[in-house]
């Protein structure tokens, strides 16, 4: 075998298995999903009726899908702001401010990340429980009368009540990511800033943020993607989209339509919508977050 052929064989040995897996487990399902979205299919019947774009036309007229999109982006915005703010704060506190027992806090803040989202949902259901939950018991102490607010049952509080556990569950991972980024900044830069008389705040904005921007960007995009595709779990565990569909997100509505109401074609159309919206959101964010990358020479 010639050197050239060897090289090609070597490359192929790595690429082909991956490509096959990618095609079977990623590309095929995507196209299969898109294909199903053009059919009227219950998900269990032998027959599928081709109906063209009818599922998508129906989708536009469906008021619940608009609620779901609104809720999805509510969670996206809420989580990006909440998680990034707190994760950065904790990361700075643990690395830059001399706090005693910082490694202890690092572990504590990371714990929610190793708990399954299902467990988190169940735990927070107890926190929000109107008759026996922590929040209402706490409020009862101050109000003097029994507080019976159904946090997850009122349309004006339900989405906010889903946001806090989502933020709480997400901080740890991004905190670790940012800690690693901050620790890779040479301490000389901070020493020099100190000598120049820069305050901690000034150092944060002028040294830390530019040098960890790449990681922050990754964090934002990752939060956005996982929220658009994964908020299904927390919603399903805590409210199942209720009351009266007010906490439905696209993922939970997809599940509801596909597996509870037997409109698999319609559910696939929602899947395609998620794909499109995720794609658009990522592209837009890529543009918005573009900023000169500062690299250490």
């Amino acid at each position: 075998m010639s050197q050239r052929a060897k090289r090609k064989f070597f490359i192929a040995a790595f690429i082909i298995p991956t490509l096959v897996f990618f095609c079977v487990f990623t590309l095929y399902p995507i196209f299969r999903g898109i294909y199903i979205s053009f059919y009227d299919w219950s998900g269990s019947a032998k027959n599928m009726d081709f109906i063209g774009l009818d599922n998508f036309r129906e989708l536009l007229k469906d008021p619940i899908i608009w609620t779901a999109i609104k809720n999805d982006y509510f969670l996206v915005v809420g989580k990006v702001i909440g998680i990034l703010l707190l994760a950065t704060l904790f990361a700075i506190a643990i690395t830059r401010l001399n706090i005693r027992g910082s490694s202890f806090y690092r572990v504590i803040f990371f714990i929610p990340n190793i708990i399954s989202v299902v467990v988190i949902g169940v735990l927070w259901r107890y926190v929000y429980n109107p008759n026996m939950g922590f929040i209402n018991s706490f409020l009862t102490l101050f109000k003097g009368e029994q507080v019976q607010t159904a946090w997850l049952g009122q349309e004006n509080t339900a989405m906010w009540s889903l946001l806090w556990p989502s933020i709480w569950a997400g901080i740890g991972f991004y905190m670790i990511l940012l800690i690693a980024a901050i620790l890779s900044i040479p301490s000389e830069l901070y020493e020099a800033a100190d000598l120049d008389g820069a305050s901690q705040g000034r150092q944060f904005w002028s040294v830390t943020v530019p040098l960890i921007w790449e990681q922050m960007k990754v964090s934002i995009l990752h939060i956005v993607m996982t929220t658009l595709n994964g908020s299904f779990i927390i919603v399903w565990i805590m409210t199942e989209g209720g009351p009266d569909n007010s906490t439905q997100v696209m993922g939970s509505y997809l599940y509801q339509m596909g597996f509870r109401q037997y409109h698999m074609g319609y559910a696939a159309a929602i899947g395609v919508l998620i794909l499109i919206l995720s794609f658009i959101t990522t592209v837009v964010l890529q543009r918005l977050l573009r900023r000169e990358t500062i690299e250490l020479a």
Partner: peptide, 10 residues
């Protein structure tokens, strides 16, 4: 990530 979701669906 989108693909994984669709995978789950299909």
């Amino acid at each position: 990530v989108c693909a994984v979701l669709l995978l789950a669906l299909t």
